[in-house]
């Protein structure tokens, strides 16, 4: 039983990071109907920005850690907006496949630029939050998991508020449903799309920092696996659906962690894709998604 709770905590912690990344995929899919494969590399850039900002102070404090996150989130939001503006927007009227291939190109560009600028070798990530261990019975809750969980919950709650209760959030939902009708309301679709990219990228940066804080070795290819897994999480939850992405992330994180702790541990990285195949076979709209009939 102890082991079960221990693994559950680990799973929730990893899962909430997947959730943060998955939301970025789903947000962009919601307004533009394509998968931004460069998203996982924005996650990596977020971790590196966190490292550079975190190195400027040797003390670790909660406030300091939050500042590091805020800084990296702002930088990555700008990066996301730039990627959309210069790589995707010129191709807006082209087929989705063209944009998809461009996204893969941007992803490769960021990974290789990362190796050039940050260096190809793994680097240690500074301990930006104070560490402490809480123990209940045999179950250990490290401050790392606690930080990851709390930050992820706060960010996702904030996002949900933004999307459901604010004017720009409502405009995002309107534009996602029907961009033409949204423009007839006076909504500048380009601004909404930029905002969406900024938002998703900021969440990816937060995810990257949390990831680097929990697994403190970072390199320019660190985004590939978590990115793919989070993409699967977004599909699992129902692509385009924000609570779905969060749920998908948690489900995959927990299952993956339990598999890692079992005798099938070598399969842990494959399990996400097994889930992907199963969901596509039996519930292609995803856990929380609804299939929309294609209008003719």
């Amino acid at each position: 039983m102890t082991e079960f709770f221990q693994q559950l905590i680990n799973g929730l912690s990893v899962g909430s990071m997947y959730a943060l990344i998955a939301i970025g995929y789903t947000l962009v899919y919601g307004v533009l109907r394509f998968i931004n494969f460069a998203h996982s590399d924005v996650f990596m850039v977020g971790a590196f920005m966190g490292m550079y900002i975190g190195r400027t102070s040797s003390k670790s404090s909660i406030g300091g850690g939050l500042m590091v996150m805020a800084g990296a989130m702002v930088i990555c939001a700008l990066l996301g907006i730039l990627i959309e503006r210069f790589a995707y927007r010129p191709l807006r009227s082209r087929s989705k496949l063209t944009v998809l291939i461009t996204a893969i190109g941007v992803s490769l560009f960021l990974e290789n630029a990362g190796q050039l600028i940050f260096g190809p070798n793994p680097q240690p990530f500074p301990n930006i939050f104070p560490s402490h261990t809480f123990q209940y019975d045999q179950v250990v809750l490290s401050s790392k998991d606690l930080v990851v969980l709390v930050v992820a919950i706060v960010l996702m709650g904030g996002l949900q508020f933004l999307v459901l209760k604010t004017k720009i959030g409502t405009a995002m939902r309107a534009a996602a449903f029907n961009p033409q009708a949204a423009s007839l309301m006076g909504i500048n679709i380009n601004n909404v799309i930029s905002f969406t990219f900024g938002l998703g990228s900021a969440l990816a940066a937060a995810g990257g920092i949390l990831w680097a804080y929990k697994f403190p070795k970072i390199d320019p290819l660190m985004g590939v696996m978590p990115g793919l897994t989070a993409f699967v999480a977004a599909v699992l939850g129902g692509i385009g659906n924000i609570p779905g992405a969060a749920l998908g992330g948690l489900v995959i994180g927990i299952i993956e962690t339990f598999v890692k702790g079992s005798r099938w541990s070598t399969w842990s990285e494959a399990i996400a894709f097994v889930l992907l195949i199963l969901i596509l076979l039996f519930r292609p709209a995803g856990l929380l998604g609804t299939l929309q009939p294609e209008k003719v």
């Binding site: 004017k167 409502t170 405009a171 939902r173 309107a174 996602a176 449903f177 029907n178 009708a181 949204a182 309301m185 006076g186 909504i187």
Partner: peptide, 16 residues
């Protein structure tokens, strides 16, 4: 906007 409430639809009309 079929995914928004009636009131939200109207508020979008007053976006500017």
């Amino acid at each position: 906007f079929a995914n928004l409430t009636v009131l939200e639809n109207l508020m979008m009309g007053a976006y500017l």
